[in-house]
Design a protein around this nucleic acid. Structure first.
Length: 424
RNA sequence: GUGGGCGUAGCUCAGUUGGUUAGAGCACUGGACUGUGGCUCCAGAUGUCGGGGGUUCGAAUCCCCUCGCUCACCCCA
């Protein structure tokens, strides 16, 4: 017996309607905001992610990397933004004509120790807007994320917000921070001592008590923002307040990807436990340029689908997925199966969802099976019916049944098929 | 990478001073109802007790190893 690899899971038919429902809600909403779908490859050259995500970040270290037959290093995508930025440049979609708004949904891969709401293959839904620097866009994007969460019926969540500034202010800040930490390195945990060399900002959100003591009094980036960033940050807060979007300013918030600039945010569910981040995003105004393109501002976010579903307290699959009524054809004898294949095909051609029983079982078993399948009607075909040229049609809700000729049955199936079309 | 918890029927789980044939509920199969579902009743089938080794007259139970799952740290969606 071969089992699935660690950290991945099958989404069985009992669960897929929920995924479809979430995806549909997201799609509809994003389209209202002017987004179009993009589908990028599941794997890319490893180099792309190392350049964008960052080599020293956790996400960078958690990649599924492999060599192809020519020895080229490829990696399964740990996130989508890098691919989208790459595609933007590769297809020369410059921003002169305005912003480029795209959304995506699909699996991402990170090699981590699996735990509740953290898998090695997980699905994300996200958006990116490339070519717009206005902080009002940040408001629009965050507002859209809120809309989606509300639409999905996710009740309690918090928006954590921070502002990292641009290269200029960050440079001054990092210098200041380095100076501040220089005398205190010995008080930091071993990981942070490493970070002092490679990834200074990460020290800020280290959860260890010993590091907390040091970071508590560390200078905050807010006080080092350049006039332009200050202006943008206050516009952002003004906009969020104006749109009645509550947020929590969190100066310790530093995201796990190197490319972020200015606005960063994370939405956490208050009912998930340890892995509570259901949405994360922010600006990456320098990324396109770092990839060799013109200086182009951009912003995006992504949501973890599994985590979204985990916050839905009562995922009622039946209600989410309204399925068509089912016509079940029960047969007794080989000759009846032959008639059955004809009838089931006829029904389907008239727009009915129909299924044909091929097991050589008694009627009792077949009705039970029809009931289990949720059939609304059962047509019974046996030797007597074939001889008479009339089949038995049973209404599975009332239990009433009557004899119908094939042309009568055809009429009924046409009505039922039609009726459904009008409703949907 | 570091810790904790757990692996008994298809599923959820009982099963302590180690003692005959390892249990329940749900699901399943058959019957009451021999060509008519849901409800009820009756009957039945089901296990390498995760795997390997050890202790013992005897191990699901105790010890060691191993695999798997799970939760947490870390980090993130």
């Amino acid at each position: 017996m071969i089992y699935s690899p660690r950290g991945v899971e099958d989404i069985l038919p009992s669960k897929t309607p929920l995924y479809q429902w979430v995806e549909k809600q997201a799609e509809r909403l994003f389209q209202l905001y002017g987004f179009e779908e993009i589908r990028t490859p599941i794997f890319e050259k490893t180099e792309l992610f190392l350049r964008t995500v960052g080599q020293e970040t956790d996400v960078g270290k958690q990649m599924y990397t492999f060599k192809d037959k020519r020895g080229r290093s490829l990696s399964l995508r740990p996130e989508a933004t890098a691919s989208i930025a790459r595609a933007y440049l590769e297809h020369k979609l410059n921003s002169k004509r305005g912003e480029w708004r795209v959304y995506y949904m699909g699996p991402m891969f990170r090699y981590e120790r699996p735990q509740a709401h953290r898998l090695r293959e997980f699905r994300q839904i996200g958006v990116e807007v490339i070519g717009q620097e206005s902080p009002w866009l940040d408001v629009e994007i965050i507002e859209m994320a809120f809309q989606l969460l509300r639409k999905l019926g996710i009740a309690s969540f918090d928006l954590h917000l921070n502002y990292l500034g641009c290269q200029k202010c960050r440079k001054r800040y990092v210098e200041e921070l380095k100076q501040y930490f220089s005398s205190k390195v010995q008080y930091l945990c071993s990981v942070c001592q490493q970070r002092y060399q490679t990834n200074l900002l990460r020290i800020l959100d280290c959860k260890k008590a010993q590091c907390r003591q040091v970071t508590e009094k560390a200078p905050e980036i807010i006080t080092y923002l350049c006039p332009d960033c200050q202006e943008k940050f206050s516009r952002l807060q003004e906009g969020l307040t104006f749109m009645k979007i509550p947020f929590i300013l969190d100066h310790q918030l530093v995201r796990g990807l190197d490319y972020y600039t200015r606005t960063i945010f994370e939405i956490t569910s208050t009912q998930l436990g340890a892995q509570d981040a259901i949405c994360g995003g922010g600006r990456y105004d320098d990324l396109i340029e770092e990839l060799g393109g013109p200086s182009t501002p951009a912003i995006g976010f992504s949501l973890g689908v599994e985590r979204l579903l985990a916050t839905l307290n009562n995922p009622d699959t039946e209600r989410q997925m309204r399925v068509r009524p089912l016509l079940y054809i029960a047969t007794v004898g080989e000759e009846a199966k032959k008639v059955g294949i004809h009838l089931v095909t006829l029904g389907r051609s008239l727009g009915m969802r129909a299924s044909l029983n091929l097991y050589s079982k008694g009627l009792s078993w077949q009705l039970k099976s029809a009931h289990r399948a949720g059939a609304s009607w059962v047509v019974m075909v046996g030797e007597d019916e074939i001889r008479r040229g009339e089949y038995i049609l049973r209404d599975m809700y009332s239990g009433e049944q009557k004899q119908v000729t094939e042309s009568e049955l055809e009429g009924i199936m046409r009505d039922l098929g039609q009726e459904r079309k009008v409703k949907s």
